[in-house]
Deep mutational scan, measured.
Amino acid sequence: DHDVVPEDKFQETLHLKEKEGCPQAFHALLSWLLTQDSTAILDFWRVLFKDYNLERYGRLQPILDSFPKDVDLSQPRKGRKPPAVPKALVPPPRLPTKRKASEEARAAAPAALTPRGTASPGSQLKAKPPKKPESSAEQQRLPLGNGIQTMSASVQRAVAMSSGDVPGARGAVEGILIQQVFESGGSKKCIQVGGEFYTPSKFEDSGSGKNKARSSSGPKPLVRAKGAQGAAPGGGEARLGQQGSVPAPLALPSDPQLHQKNEDECAVCRDGGELICCDGCPRAFHLACLSPPLREIPSGTWRCSSCLQATVQEVQPRAEEPRPQEPPVETPLPPGLRSAGEEVRGPPGEPLAGMDTTLVYKHLPAPPSAAPLPGLDSSALHPLLCVGPEGQQNLAPGARCGVCGDGTDVLRCTHCAAAFHWRCHFPAGTSRPGTGLRCRSCSGDVTPAPVEGVLAPSPARLAPGPAKDDTASHEPALHRDDLESLLSEHTFDGILQWAIQSMARPAAPFPS
């Protein structure tokens, strides 16, 4: 592969990997390779389809078979030569091979799209000592099968071997295949498990690692696999990028399955594409389908809103127990993405979901129960707010008499603000006073009005108090039968009158 990737590009890729991570280095090298001529790309395919690569990765054979028959990708048995050289000459001794072996032994695996480039050397060096003999053996194999790289107009793939297949390693990572398949204008990513390549439709969760975000852009890794992070704060999961590491605690105790298979379609829109997988259930989501939507993949363990709600429900009964003089119970939860139609709101002032922060849900004790107040519409209280300059209440639009249902020339009671006709409430011909108009209920007259088809109010509507207090003497005590009587009149003013009279009014101040 030294004929494909020059030394300066190799060093530039290593520097970019240390600065921005393996995914960015892979993407940059792939983009550079696509700008080369067809001879360089053909050399790339020839390096990929060597015999030892085909033996190690069985899924490469179907890719090789898909090439046109007129494309010669065979390799000479006596060494490598550029395709432009007409004579089959043995190339001179390859010093770059020693360079590659020494550099890969030092860096474990470079971040390139060629056999030198995919593992994360920093994480491997940190986690190597417990498994040094086995990992050293794996390093000797890295130059042979560490990076199976493929690129063409139909298929483009980048393979990364790992030393996680050490025997006896619980939940060992089998390997990473960062794979971009450009077929019919689409893009897919796969993962390699035990020599087999699994596409998103049959993606397997190998051991402790999972394909957290099938994305090839942005600074985030394709698999949430930063070796420096180790395990999740809650004892979460091992990262795919942690090559040759000792077994780590796999999943939280509440995880239903340690080796679950995540779905390959969004649980909201039932469509495929780039998904984020939940650590607590097999569901996966688009970032845009979450509520609120996320802009980037959160670091650490992530769970959907259903799993978060289940966790909150487990903690909430203990938080609601009476604990005198104790601060509110704080339950730190990872930043969760909410699927459509589901929402768990945190306290005000918290950062938005999706940031690399930890939301704190506070379970406050329930407030003391209070008697429910009568629910009145805002339009129902409008007549009470229509007060004239002299303190006389004006008529609201649409006000109707509670007896006849007519809204023409209605009066407004100064005591309960109900609309009424003087002739309907006082049919006996009582003279109307000039000021202080009161309806039949507030004036103490319980004589029913002779209106055909309208039920008369119940005599129990009024329960006047002592006459010594004029204001308190007109406080009506309405009961269920009074409400039914008012409802039978089918008037809004009657219902409003009952609601206003049912509310307690402050006692009249004593004259000074």
Rank of each mutant, 00 (worst) to 15 (best):
G300V: 11
L437N: 11
P511Q: 07
P332Q: 09
Q309L: 09
V315T: 10
C401S: 03
G388M: 09
C401T: 03
L478T: 02
D356F: 04
E452R: 06
L308F: 10
A370K: 11
P448I: 03
A396D: 11
P292E: 15
Y361V: 09
T414C: 03
A248W: 15
S305Y: 11
C281F: 09
S458F: 11
D409S: 07
A251D: 11
P383L: 06
A396T: 12
K362M: 15
R400N: 12
A288P: 14
P448L: 07
P351E: 14
C401K: 01
L258Y: 15
Q309R: 08
S378A: 10
P365G: 12
F285K: 14
T414A: 10
C281Y: 06
R303V: 07
E350P: 08
C416Y: 02
H363D: 02
C416T: 03
P433H: 15
D482P: 06
A463R: 08
H425V: 06
C266Y: 04
L411F: 04
S431H: 12
P372R: 10
L252K: 06
L308H: 10
L275Y: 04
T414L: 13
E274Q: 10
L352V: 09
L381N: 11
V329C: 09
P293F: 15
A456I: 08
P348R: 13
P249W: 11
E350H: 08
N394I: 10
A507N: 10
A340D: 10
Q313K: 08
T301Y: 12
R318A: 14
P324L: 13
C281W: 06
H425G: 08
C304E: 15
L275N: 04
A508H: 09
P292M: 12
G405L: 02
V454W: 05
A399V: 08
A310Y: 11
V329L: 10
G398C: 08
C278W: 06
L373H: 13
G241Q: 02
L487G: 04
A477C: 13
S441G: 07
L411W: 04
A396W: 13
S485N: 03
D271Y: 07
A370T: 12
P256H: 13
G388P: 14
P397S: 10
E330R: 13
I297A: 07
G280S: 09
R438H: 10
A428H: 13
R438Q: 04
V344P: 13
E265D: 10
A248Q: 10
P450R: 10
P324K: 06
